[in-house]
């Protein structure tokens, strides 16, 4: 990555059964996509606590992807419906906190959709590149110590106050 251009820093929460395997398939098929996103595995997209998303922004992420199984395909019957129900609320909350809605994205990516995974990461990278850097932690605290995470000491306690 060149020093001058803005390179988005992205976190992707991938459910273990569908989207993580979809990402693996993109790998085995040697599909090329931008290197900006670091995947974090959870068993189900329903495990993605909205505080994870805020934590990512606080730690300097410019965008967060949540990816789970297609509706009806959830390994846990309906965990992804919980994700789907939670997501719009979380988006409103993030908007109220001053975030552009395009900084979070929810996608259903199956284990067979390596191409969709690669395409999603590529699109999302460009989407965030267009939005520019977020520097959320700085915006909130000025001196770099995140206000949501209570000075970087114990983010969990402060963050858990946010209703899921």
């Amino acid at each position: 990555m060149s020093d001058n251009a803005f390179e988005p820093r992205l976190i992707g929460f991938l459910c273990r059964w569908c989207s993580y395997n979809g990402a693996d398939l993109a790998g085995t098929a040697r599909m090329k996509y931008p290197p900006n996103m670091v995947p974090i595995k959870t068993n189900c997209s329903g495990r993605v606590d909205p505080t994870f998303v805020m934590k990512a922004f606080q730690e300097g992420a410019d965008g967060v992807l949540i990816a789970g199984c297609h509706p009806g395909d959830c390994h846990y019957i309906n965990g992804n419906y919980r994700t789907a129900a939670r997501y719009p609320l979380m988006k409103v909350l993030l908007q109220q906190m001053g975030l552009e809605p395009g900084r979070v994205r929810l996608e259903w990516i199956s284990a067979a959709e390596g191409d969709k995974f690669a395409r999603t990461v590529a699109e999302f990278t460009e989407q965030i590149r267009a939005l520019g850097p977020l520097e959320w932690g700085k915006q909130f605290s000025g001196n770099g110590s995140g206000s949501i995470g209570a000075g970087g000491q114990e983010p969990t306690e402060a963050l858990e106050e946010v209703p899921a």
């Binding site: 959870t42 189900c44 606590d49 909205p50 965990g79 969990t156 858990e160």
Partner: peptide, 25 residues
């Protein structure tokens, strides 16, 4: 072990072994 309860609890009481909040953070 889907972890839906962990994400849903307003007080962070349920925790998922191997996928603790602290581990993901």
């Amino acid at each position: 072990g889907c972890g839906v309860c962990v994400a849903a609890c307003g007080s962070g009481v349920p925790q998922q072994r191997g996928y603790l909040d602290a581990q993901i953070f």
